[in-house]
Write a protein that binds this DNA or RNA. Structure first.
Length: 643
DNA sequence: GCAAGGTC
């Protein structure tokens, strides 16, 4: 019997073929340079038994969804809203023909198709695409699906011997998303472009796109911009107590922090002065540690790259992609922050010993300092955390590759070493009726910090000796005054965190959405505090106008808000659970968006007017006042760390 | 000329 196995990408096909064949595998070229057919024998057990196996792959999605050509000639006719119910068809784009024909050819001589795509929703859908192509060539082919969550040998062999069925509900859930993104994206892009180009100026040649991810991304930037712009500082007051001892000035901070009522602070402060003597009510010395970082996910990788490597998320991803293709690092698109127990991490540490910069640290881990990495709470059940595979000497990498590789390698070694250790001293005093505290830390063992220069432990102050119960008169006691300061503009790391918390995009696409709103001139970047500062995102007048315009027009559903994407995700889940169907979701969502479209058309004036005064200003330096809608909308999304 | 999602 002959079995055709198809994975989502070559790296999985290759790894699975290695495991199943025990290394006795022949790799054959296909009509596509990225795709190989791996041929070997494997005993599946009952009922297939010993089989001739071809293991091959696709390269992500195989098909595309398109409108008929008569809808594409002119963006004005047929009117964009016709795209809400125009026919759509599934086809194989030119670039994927060779991949499809490889599957067809192999399927003709196979009795079974065994699908090995990633075990996530998109992977299930790709499995569905593969099944269609295979069935077209061989209508009687038996179709099975492998369930696997990592590519460890034993796990893969178990999955190979326990074929399951493709989950059609998951396939349908993705079909619903695909169709909605296409219809709504195209319809609103054409609507915006048609109607705002006529305002003239730089707009007349621009494409004004709408997308269910790019608009919420823009919404975050605009939201923060208005928070900064409309910030009103509030004065506050506090009490500072300091005491000099052993030539060291120890500052005690007030347990209440600060209060916004000056009179209350005056009263509390006067009680301190009247008491005159402060009393030591707690002296605590205890070991403390600074935790080593978690195994590296794509999101963390991008956030760190924008902070420490001075690259954009999109640049960092493209460099990581190259390092992956050359075999230096593992697959760079992963949500997993825990290593599988079965992985030989010590062997990976050993690979790093040749390096002149971190080699001796790696050697020390191999010699016994190795510690199992922390286990995060995320697992995409498809890919391990990003880690170095083989050693890459600086001479074989270009400048950006060197920096990314160094970060990935150091991060991995940090994960495999020990937390930094220190001793914390906490002193609490009572002064009047108020409590004040001083905190000091001395670092005893740097451990992972030695290999991970991106972090430091700054609290290296040792406090002088204070004894429980002792009384002293502080050398300084004063009332302080300050005011609240505005938030800063979003950095790329902030933006990525917001997108993640609100489910906008995936690990593989978040950086692209950010790049998209830059390319569209909806936002621009600016270096905080000069050329070497952090990059921050500020909306253009156009970006503000688009978000503000939709906020003002649509009372029920504003296109700039991220919960629409959340809704889509919930609906996809409901399709998977069988609580609804693709058809029902499409109908419901399209009705909803049709309403937004109609409202937008009726109130086109709002969108155009909000833009009008600012055209001469070259798209920048916009002064808009905060609207009521905007103020209400501010807290309608999830902040990173919430929940 | 237009989406978001895979992937190279």
């Amino acid at each position: 019997m002959k079995v055709l196995c198809v994975a989502e990408k070559n790296s999985i096909a290759k790894a699975v073929a290695e495991h199943m064949s025990g290394g006795r595998v022949a790799a054959e070229n296909t009509g596509n340079r990225y795709i190989k057919n791996y041929k070997f024998n494997f005993d599946f057990g009952q009922p297939w038994g010993r089989c001739n196996v071809t293991m091959t792959c696709v390269s992500g999605h195989l098909t595309e969804l398109t409108f008929p050509s008569e809808y594409n000639a002119d963006w004005k006719y047929p009117a964009p809203d016709r795209l809400f119910n125009a026919p759509v068809s599934v086809s194989i784009p030119e670039g994927n023909r060779t991949i499809a024909s490889n599957i067809e050819q192999e399927a003709r001589h196979s009795q079974a198709l065994f699908i090995w795509t990633d075990c996530d929703l998109e992977g299930e859908h790709i499995g569905g695409e593969i099944r269609e192509v295979a069935r077209k060539a061989n209508s009687r082919i038996e179709v099975k699906r492998a369930r696997f969550s990592n590519i460890e040998r034993a796990h893969i062999l178990a999955a190979a011997r326990r074929p399951t069925a493709l989950d059609d509900k998951q396939v349908e859930a993705v079909n619903a998303r695909l169709e909605l993104d296409l219809r709504i994206g195209f319809a609103f892009t054409r609507f915006l472009t048609n109607n705002l180009r006529s305002l003239g100026g730089p707009l007349s040649s621009m494409v004004l796109s709408y997308g269910s991810c790019q608009f919420p991304t823009l919404g975050f930037v605009v939201d923060r911009y208005f928070r900064v712009k409309n910030f009103v500082p509030e004065p506050f007051w506090g009490i500072k107590v300091a005491h000099e001892r052993e030539n060291q000035n120890v500052t005690f901070s007030w347990a209440r922090g600060h209060l916004f009522d000056r009179a209350s602070v005056i009263i509390l402060f006067e009680r301190c002065l009247v008491a005159k003597m402060a009393k030591v009510t707690k002296v605590q010395e205890k070991p403390t540690s600074k935790w080593k970082p978690l195994p590296l996910t794509t999101l963390e990788f991008q956030k760190n790259a924008t902070r420490f490597l001075r690259m954009t998320g999109a640049e960092a991803m493209s460099v990581a992609e190259g390092l992956y293709q050359k075999g230096f690092i593992s697959y760079p698109r992963t949500e997993t922050d825990r290593f599988d127990k079965g992985m030989n991490l010590r062997a990976l540490c050993e690979k790093q010993t040749p390096d002149t910069r971190w080699g001796s640290f790696a050697q020390n881990l191999v010699n016994g300092a190795f510690q199992q990495p922390r286990q995060g709470r995320h697992d995409d059940k498809a890919h391990p955390p990003i880690h170095p595979i083989t050693y890459a000497a600086p001479s074989v990498l270009n400048a950006n590759e060197q920096r990314v590789y160094e970060f990935v390698a150091r991060r991995f070694l940090a994960c495999c070493s020990e937390d930094a250790k220190g001793m914390a001293t906490d002193i609490e005093i009572t002064y009047g009726d108020e409590i004040f505290g001083a905190h000091g830390v001395i670092v005893l063992e740097r451990n992972y910090l030695d290999v991970y220069p991106y972090e430091n432990w700054t609290g290296t102050t040792m406090l002088p000796k204070f004894t429980l119960g002792e009384q002293f008169e502080p050398t300084e006691a004063m009332m302080t005054e300050g005011k609240t300061s505005p938030p800063s503009y979003l950095t790329e790391a902030d933006l990525l965190a917001l997108m993640d918390a609100n489910g906008i995009g995936t690990d593989a696409t978040m950086a692209e959405h950010i790049k998209k709103i830059l390319d569209r001139k909806y936002v621009f970047t600016h270096q905080r505090g000069g050329a070497r500062g952090l990059t921050e995102f500020i909306p253009s007048a156009l970006g503000c106008a688009l978000i503000e315009g939709f906020d003002r027009m649509n009372f029920e559903t504003s296109l700039g808000k991220p919960f629409l994407r959340k809704e889509m995700e919930l609906k996809m889940k409901a399709i998977c659970n069988g609580r609804t169907t693709k058809q029902a979701v499409l109908q419901e969502s399209l009705t909803q968006y049709r309403q937004v479209y109609d409202q937008s058309q009726e109130q086109l004036g709002v969108l155009r007017a909000v833009r009008k005064p600012h055209i001469p200003r070259n798209g920048m330096g916009l002064e808009l006042t905060e609207t009521n809608h905007h103020r209400q909308a501010c807290r309608q999304y999830v902040f990173p760390g919430q929940n």
